[in-house]
Structure formats: structure tokens, C-alpha cells
Design a protein around this nucleic acid. Structure first.
Length: 585
RNA sequence: GCGCCCUUAGCUCAGUGGACUAGAGCAACGGCCUUCUAAGCCGUGGGUCCCAGGUUCGAAUCCUGGAGGGCGCACCA
């Protein structure tokens, strides 16, 4: 249960009752009432601004109205105190029994705790990674991959029907360059010398060498003297398939999965671009025109040129955008328009794209296109992921493709483990740069959030294991533990921990609403902190230890708490795609 | 030059309209601990929330302008 939503509806019920009783005017607007945790825990458990919002409409003083509302709210059995504070906030204090009931709920629901129907089974398409099939993934792709994957899981948890999608840019100039580079690797594999500058405009990486070798194994010398027109499509298709296999392996190592891989080439081949552009044209949004040079900077090879343009300025963009290149072929933007129309037609009114920082300039035009094509019915949110700076023990890792000192995502994942990479990628909001230190993330200290959260889960599991030794007859299943005498959980630290755990459903919903999975990393860190804190108090005072050999009843109640804690952490890590470990090694 | 993003404690960052005192971790300083699983615990100091206006009963939060940093900027993806 999202207890804040519950009390929100309780507040609204009271408002409704008072309206019926004539104590409040009819037709009052209560939509601005919010019910949330007070900033200061000392103020209570639940706080609402209802009186402040309604005072003016009711023609009553905020504090007077607050007193009346508070009086009614006290009728709820869970409310032990309803105090008016400041200008007219109402702070509710809840009964211990209310909190222990939340623990029972957690034990009953398991990692499904925090699930909700917030999304109302609405369909959402989350597109992420979509790295060009021209090379292995780098650390920046990894961030997008994790953010997209976790966001998708988060949305599923709150009841959306989510499609995880990867768009393969397998059409256009980039993959032709790939074919070009692979052709030279093919010749090289046959022992034919290649010039020093052959990769100047394409892909010099060694990772294409095995592909050249495979082409030799498959075709021998067949293409050595053939014209480019002859080998281009063969080499291109082969190279794309090989590179996608590499990328899929990289993704697998990171634990990232997709429901759909969409091909740009296929979309073009089946006429999707022509259809989408025709649709735009029908709306009168396509025209032939000449763009001004970008304000304040004129590219060297600038020349005024008539182009086919999309009237994106009608939908909030800064300038109209070209749909066709000078050779008459479609631009990347044109096929992307078609792709987004395709996603919309496949049922996703809400689309979320996770992009790298270098694509930030495309957000407005893409949103403009979605608005135009769907008549405002489609919604596109773009999460732009800022750069990831790699460090090793505090020193920046210098990377240069030329010097061959390029660190791939795979290398980092193999070095520190997928769980570490995934968690760290979620410890910052997507739109700020993230420092990733391959040394620091393996430290076993409180500074390292991955360790700190994992350790809380492991420590909880450890306590449960020890319980089996101390109390051989005890049943440690959640179902059995929920039957414990939870009323014996009266220590402030224990109740504070349950309060934090009970906040999970609200945390999940808020993160989902803002499409911001990183919020959960902060929550999990705080939750882990509460648990470690209670553990440490047990170090000081033996009375506070979770296991008390001379008091089986109290121990069972505390074990229920420990089990619940492990459950909530596991529920969070599940969204992150991080395995909740049972012991640290 | 234009667009987008960022600017909160010495450092790294939470905090998308509410109050009494703007939070956390690290670092600093002062104590303590050597453990039911060790990688710690308690306390103290530390802030013109980049600046200036505006909206509001109320602004770190919304709006406008400015400063600094990042990313991008027609016919590449």
C-alpha cells in the first residue's frame, strides 16, 4: 500500500463529508491537496497542506480549517495524533500497529511489494542503446543501456505494458563505411597490403579484423578484384550481422535484454519512410525551401541549397529540418520520423527514448515530428544521458581511438562485474555527467553505494542464517515470520526502519512518474543506512540485537523485520537488474 | 552566435511550490569500538542554494535577464 495515497484519500473523504455537512462550500477544488512525508521526521509521519489549499475557497482561516480537518482525521484508527503546525499544515502521527501492519504486508507480498496499477496497463515503448552496428559498445552506451533497462522495469512494476526496443541503424552512410573498412580487413587477411590511410574516414579498430578473416573463410578470393558495387551489399550485411552479434554479447554481459530489435533498413525497404513523409505532406508540413546558415556560425562548405523541409517550427522547434539529402535520399531524421510513427502505430502512445548527450540537439525536432504525426496523441519523452568519465583510482582514463587506448564497455563489465556497473550507472540523474572510478566502485566502504546496499541484503541474510542455528525450531519463511508478535517491535530504530520500508511504494511511483530510476538508488542507500544503523546500535547495546537467545518471541519479531528489509532491498535491486547477494565474499 | 543541460557545505551529490533549523555521504575536528559477518560508531564545525529582478501569503524549486561549465549546431548517424 502506498500509505500517502491512502491518507490522501482519507483527507479527501473528510473534505467530502464536511462539504455534505455544509461546513465547506460545494464545488470546492481539492486537486492541489498533497499528502506526503513531512520534511522533518519529528513533525510526524504524514503531512498534508489541505487546509492551506482550501482556506481561501472556504473563506476560513487556514489554521481554523486545519483544526476542523484534524479533528475529523483523528477518527481514523491508525491516527494517534493530528497536529496543526505552522501556517496550517496538518501532521499525522500513526500508530505502531499501523507500521507493523505494513511489515506484514511486505512479508506477504515479497518482492512484488511496491507494485501498483499506476500505469493502468497503458502501453509504453522504451527505446534505448540503439548503438550503430559499427563497433563494440563503449561506457556511454552502457549508461544508456542500464538507464533504459531499469526504467523499463520500473514502469512494468507500476503497471505499464512495456516494450523494450533497440533501433538498428543499418541503413545509410555509416554502415557503408563499415563495409568499406571490412573490405580492407578482408584484403589484409588475404595478405594484400593496405595503405596507411585507408581507414581515415571509417573504422580503424582491430575488432574488424576477425570479420575480414571470416569473409576470407567464406568467400576466399572471390571479391578481391570485384567492383565496390558488387561487394558492398554483401560485405555490409555480413559486417552488420557480425557487429550486432558483438553488441548482443556486450548487452548480455551487462544483463540488458530487448523485446524488439527494429531495423532501419527493413523500415525503408517496406516503404515506411515514404508513407510517413506522405502523411506529413498531407498535413501540409513538407515544403521545398532554403535554410539560413546556423546563427553566428557559417560552416566552411555552406551554400544555400533548396531542400525538402519539415515545418517543425510549427511544433516548437527552432528551425525547420531537412528530410532529404542533396542526392535525393532520405536523411536520418526522415527515417527516424517513420520509425516513431511505426512505434506509435504498434500501440505505444507513450514513447521514451534514451539518448546519448551528443543527440541532445535532436530532441525538439523529434518531439515536433511525433506531435505532428500523431495529432498530439503521442507523447515522446527523451532521456538524455550525459557523458561517463572513466577514472582509475582517481586518475582520468585517457581514451583515444587512434592510439588504440579505447576502453570498451565489455572490458569494464568484465573487470568490475555487471552488478556494479548497473548500480553505479543509476546513482546519478541521467542529465548530469557521471564519474566512474573502476577502483572506487570495488571498495568495501560506505562511500561505495553498491557495496553498502548489497551488504545490507547480505547482512540480513546472514542474520537469518544465524537464527536457524540459535533457534533450531524456528520457521524462517516470510509467511511464518509474519505470524510473529510484531507488537514487540517498539524500539525507535526498529520503527524508523519499518517507516522507511513502508515508503517504498511511494518511492517507486514517484520514480516512475518522472521516469527517473536513479531516485531509487538514493532510497536504497538510505534504507541500507537505517538497517546498518540498527545493527550498529546492537553492537553497543546487546538488548537491541536482532537475535536474543533468551527471548524467542522478540527474536522472531525482529527476524520478521530483517526479512522484510531484505525483501524491500531485493525488490529495488530487481528493478535495477542487480542480483541481491546473500553473502559478501 | 544560437539551442539544450548543469551550477546547492571544502569535495561528490539528493532535494520539480510550503513552516520552526535547506539535507546525505566523504573530507576536517573531537571522542569511541575491535564486533551476532570484518569492511565501523557517536558528536562538532561548515551554506548570500551562481548573480539580479519578477510571480506568490510562501521560491533552491516557477518566470525573465545575466555569469560560469558541459554537449550539440544544414545536405552524418
Amino acid at each position: 500500500m502506498n500509505l500517502f495515497k491512502y491518507f490522501q484519500s482519507e483527507v479527501l473523504n473528510v473534505v467530502e463529508e464536511m462539504t455534505v455537512a455544509g461546513k465547506l462550500p460545494a464545488g470546492i477544488d481539492s486537486t492541489k491537496i498533497v499528502t506526503e512525508p513531512p520534511r522533518e521526521a519529528a513533525h510526524g509521519d504524514v503531512s498534508t497542506n489541505a487546509a492551506l489549499v482550501l482556506a481561501k475557497q472556504a473563506g476560513q482561516k487556514p489554521r481554523d480549517l486545519a483544526e476542523r480537518l484534524a479533528h475529523q482525521l483523528k477518527e481514523n484508527a491508525a491516527v494517534v495524533a493530528a497536529e496543526v503546525a505552522g501556517p496550517g499544515f496538518i501532521n499525522l502521527r500513526l500508530a505502531d500497529a499501523f507500521w507493523t501492519a505494513r511489515l506484514t504486508e511486505i512479508l506477504a507480498e515479497g518482492t512484488a511489494y511496491g507494485d501498483s496499477d499506476f500505469g493502468r496497463a497503458e502501453r509504453v515503448n522504451v527505446e534505448y542503446v540503439s548503438a550503430n552496428p559499427t563497433g563494440p559498445m563503449h561506457i556511454g552506451h552502457g549508461r544508456g543501456a542500464v538507464v533504459g533497462d531499469a526504467l523499463a522495469s520500473l514502469l512494468e512494476k507500476v503497471g505499464y505494458q512495456v516494450v523494450r526496443e533497440y533501433y538498428i541503424n543499418d541503413a545509410g552512410a555509416q554502415v557503408d563505411k563499415l563495409a568499406q573498412a571490412v573490405y580492407y580487413r578482408y584484403r589484409e587477411a588475404l595478405g594484400i597490403g593496405i595503405g596507411p590511410d585507408v581507414f581515415k574516414d571509417s573504422y580503424p579498430g582491430d575488432y574488424l579484423k576477425p570479420i575480414g578473416q571470416k569473409l576470407v573463410e567464406k568467400y576466399g578470393r572471390e571479391w578481391v578484384d570485384a567492383a565496390p558495387e558488387a561487394w558492398l551489399s554483401v560485405f555490409r550485411d555480413f559486417a552488420i550481422a557480425e557487429m550486432m552479434a558483438v553488441i548482443r554479447e556486450d548487452l548480455k554481459a551487462l544483463g540488458v535484454v530487448f523485446d524488439v530489435f527494429s531495423s532501419e533498413r527493413a523500415l525503408v525497404a517496406e516503404g515506411g519512410v515514404d508513407a510517413a513523409l506522405k502523411a506529413l505532406d498531407t498535413k501540409g508540413l513538407v515544403y521545398e525551401g532554403v535554410l539560413e546558415p546556423p546563427k553566428g556560425m557559417v560552416p566552411e562548405d555552406w551554400e544555400p541549397r533548396p531542400q525538402t523541409l519539415f515545418r517543425s517550427t510549427d511544433f516548437g522547434d527552432d528551425v525547420d529540418r531537412p528530410l532529404r539529402k542533396s542526392d535525393g535520399s532520405w536523411t536520418y531524421f526522415a527515417s527516424d520520423i517513420a520509425y516513431h510513427l511505426d512505434k506509435f502505430r504498434r500501440g505505444a502512445n507513450t514513447m521514451i527514448n534514451v539518448w546519448g548527450a551528443d543527440h541532445a540537439g535532436y530532441v525538439k525536432r523529434m518531439q515536433a515530428a511525433v506531435k505532428a504525426l500523431t495529432d498530439g496523441k503521442g507523447d515522446l519523452d527523451v532521456k538524455v544521458c550525459q557523458l561517463v568519465n572513466l577514472f582509475e583510482a582517481g586518475a582520468p582514463v585517457k581514451m583515444s581511438k587512434r592510439a588504440g587506448t579505447f576502453i570498451t564497455l565489455r572490458e569494464v563489465v568484465d573487470e568490475v562485474g555487471k552488478d556494479v556497473v548497473r548500480f553505479i550507472m543509476l546513482t546519478r540523474k541521467n542529465d548530469v555527467t557521471l564519474d566512474f572510478d573502476t577502483e572506487k566502485v570495488r571498495e568495501q566502504t560506505r562511500d561505495n553505494p553498491v557495496f553498502y546496499v548489497q551488504y545490507a541484503h547480505a547482512r540480513a541474510c546472514s542474520v537469518l542464517r544465524h537464527a536457524g542455528e540459535a533457534f533450531p525450531d524456528i520457521q524462517l519463511t516470510p509467511a511464518a515470520l509474519s505470524g510473529a508478535a510484531l507488537g514487540r517491535l517498539t524500539e525507535p530504530g526498529e520503527l524508523a526502519l519499518i517507516r522507511k520500508m513502508a515508503d517504498w511504494p511511494r518511492q517507486v511511483e514517484t520514480a516512475a512518474r518522472f521516469h527517473e530510476p536513479h531516485r531509487l538508488a538514493f532510497y536504497l542507500y538510505e534504507l541500507a543506512g537505517e538497517f546498518h544503523g540498527q545493527w550498529n546500535r546492537g553492537n553497543e547495546a546487546a538488548d537491541l540485537r536482532f537475535l536474543k537467545p533468551d527471548d524467542a518471541e522478540l527474536s522472531a519479531a525482529r527476524l520478521a523485520l530483517v526479512s522484510g528489509l531484505a525483501t524491500v532491498i531485493a525488490s529495488g535491486l530487481e528493478i535495477f537488474g542487480v542480483e541481491p547477494v546473500e553473502e559478501m565474499r
